[in-house]
């Protein structure tokens, strides 16, 4: 009988998935809306349009999609009246965490990012659609390789996890606290990014270019490319920033675990 297995001791993957099934009726709508948004974004990115409009759409799409990912845990702020019922479900905290993180860090990014990334790849292979400005932006986006790519991924996960932590920790105004979590985590990443980018720029001779770079657009692009290349390599600065980011992400995960386990309602 299923229920027998569901009350057994120790970690149970099956119980975690049953817990997910219990939640999914509430989350289905979000997944569908996110997926539809991602389809629309992917299609918009392939619309032939003047360069300025395409650049504008690119910026809009790639601002909106990460924001959807970061704010996905706000769905758990809904339905305050059922919080006790949800908390009472006989599932270990580890099993709950597994489901929550699979949803937030795997299902949501898959629904949000896969199609627009594919659409970007298609765009870069159809010359009829291409506009130079947008091509540069895609080139920059897809140049996130090596440790820079890892920093980008871990950074995104950190913001989403910070949002989830705030939603679970708050007793009241959970939605508001979730948004505060997104803003605070994004600001932290912004600082780290600024430090990382700044140090990389200076280390490849930005200071020398102060007189020329500002006036000469080509030099700015070249500098950007060089900065990206430098950041993608395993230099001590990138490793340090990655380490800090990984550390705060793990701390956020631990705090969330503790909150789910012991927070008094």
């Amino acid at each position: 009988m299923t229920s027998q297995a569901l009350t057994s001791r120790g970690f149970s993957f099956r119980r975690s998935m049953e817990f997910g099934a219990y939640y999914m009726t509430r989350l289905k709508k979000q997944l569908i809306i996110y997926f539809i948004t991602s389809i629309i974004c992917a299609l918009i990115a392939l619309v032939p349009a003047p360069e300025k409009l395409q650049v504008g759409l690119f910026v809009m799409i790639w601002t909106l999609l990460p924001l959807l990912f970061y704010c996905a845990p706000l769905i758990f702020a809904k339905g305050a009246d059922s919080r006790i019922i949800d908390r009472l479900i006989p599932v270990t905290t580890g099993e709950k965490m597994l489901f929550f993180y699979l949803y937030i860090l795997v299902a949501i990014p898959a629904a949000v990012f896969i199609l627009p990334i594919l659409s970007g790849l298609i765009y870069t292979h159809i010359p009829a659609l291409q506009q130079p400005g947008v091509m540069q932006l895609y080139e920059l986006k897809f140049s996130f390789i090596g440790i820079l790519n890892l920093i980008n991924i871990v950074g995104g996960c950190f913001v989403a996890m910070a949002c989830f932590y705030c939603v679970e920790y708050a007793r009241h105004n959970r939605l508001l606290w979730g948004i505060v979590g997104v803003v605070a985590a994004n600001t932290t990443i912004g600082f780290l990014g600024a430090i990382l980018g700044g140090v990389a720029a200076f280390s490849i001779g930005y200071q020398d270019g102060l007189n020329g770079v500002g006036r000469d657009e080509m030099c700015v692009e070249e500098l950007t490319r060089k900065v990206m290349q430098k950041l993608s390599m395993l230099d001590p600065m990138s490793i340090t920033v990655f380490g800090i980011l990984l550390g705060v992400t793990m701390i956020t995960g631990f705090l969330t675990y503790r909150t789910l386990k012991k927070r008094n309602l």
């Binding site: 569901l6 009350t7 057994s8 001791r9 149970s12 009472l88 479900i89 006989p90 270990t92 905290t93």
Partner: peptide, 14 residues
């Protein structure tokens, strides 16, 4: 009842 264990939690409902 506050143990992180389905065996403990599954006996009570509020």
């Amino acid at each position: 009842p506050d143990d992180d264990n389905p065996d403990s939690k599954g006996h009570t409902f509020l």
